[in-house]
Nucleic acid binder design. Structure first.
Length: 268
DNA sequence: GGAGATGTTTCAAG
DNA sequence: GCTTGAAACATCTC
């Protein structure tokens, strides 16, 4: 599920645990989640530490613990974070549970496309990989110039596909990429090399607008976006373009391996 | 039973 | 070295 606003929402789910001490760490050691680090290392690395703070950047999350321990999390397609009562016993797809005594922090992911990592550092700086993440759409360093340089580097790639590229648009996922193309009335399969400077300024602006609105509506309490957006119509078979005066049947097709939804009239 | 799902990595080819 | 495109990953739901 998670794109930047959903990631922000899930980050907040663990916030009630800030200040708590990790009494016990429970894992499913054989889960694919632990492909980058053994579950035993996560257990010994976090046990006894205090949960200090959490951060979100695009689809990445970082949780800091006392003594220079940093837990990185990516939710993949189906990852979720929630809290449960203290002493919670992990269910089938709950691969990591941090028991804080009075409550438990739970990471579940049934498809296991998510992953996790743990950095132990001497200073109190976040690990290098985190500091080097590309600027997010709402960051001042996410400039028009940056968008143009990135997009034009791949002239034979469709715009929608590039919007999904985390090196250029961290946090943008499938529904947001389709939304941006639809709002701009650009066919998602438009090759980036055919977009002129003015059009890419529009892409920059719309990427920021969609990100801002998603953070406001979903990032806070997972509310519903306006029905005037493509989002609420894109999954249903027989979905209709919500643009005033259009009402054309939406098309869903595979584009470079991802389901893509657009209006053949507005974006024709 | 088959297809598809809001994602990333990897590998091969141009 | 770079870009491009497809397959692989794991499990559940329709």
């Amino acid at each position: 599920m998670p794109e930047l606003a959903e990631v922000e929402y899930y980050r907040k789910q663990w916030e009630p645990g800030v200040g708590g001490e990790v009494v016990r760490v429970l894992t499913h050691p054989a889960a694919r989640i632990y492909r980058d680090i053994p579950a035993a290392a996560v257990e010994s690395g976090l046990a006894g530490r205090t949960f200090l703070a959490s951060h979100a950047h695009g689809k990445q999350m970082l949780f800091s613990f006392s003594g220079g321990a940093w837990l990185g999390l990516h939710l993949g397609m189906s990852g979720e974070l929630r809290t449960a009562p203290g002493g919670h016993a992990p269910a089938k797809h709950e691969h990591l549970v941090l028991d804080l005594g009075d409550q438990s922090l739970v990471f579940s992911d049934y498809r296991m496309f998510g992953c996790l990592g743990l950095d132990l550092v001497d200073d109190n700086e976040p690990p290098a990989w985190w500091r080097e993440l590309p600027p997010q759409p709402l960051d001042p360093r996410f400039t028009k110039k940056r968008v143009k340089e990135f997009v034009w580097r791949f002239p034979r790639t469709p715009l929608k596909t590039l919007l999904l590229d985390q090196r250029g648009f961290p946090g943008i996922g499938n529904w947001m990429a389709d939304e941006i193309c639809w709002q701009l009335r650009i066919p998602p399969q438009t090759l980036s090399g055919s977009l002129d400077e003015a059009r890419l300024d529009d892409v920059w602006k719309e990427t920021r607008r969609v990100s801002r609105e998603a953070m406001r509506v979903i990032g806070t309490d997972w509310g519903d976006l306006a029905d005037a957006w493509l989002m609420n119509h894109r999954w249903r078979d027989g979905g209709i373009c919500p643009r005033r005066g259009c009402r054309t049947g939406l098309v869903r097709e595979d584009l470079r391996g991802r389901t893509t939804c657009w209006c053949p009239k507005c974006q024709g």
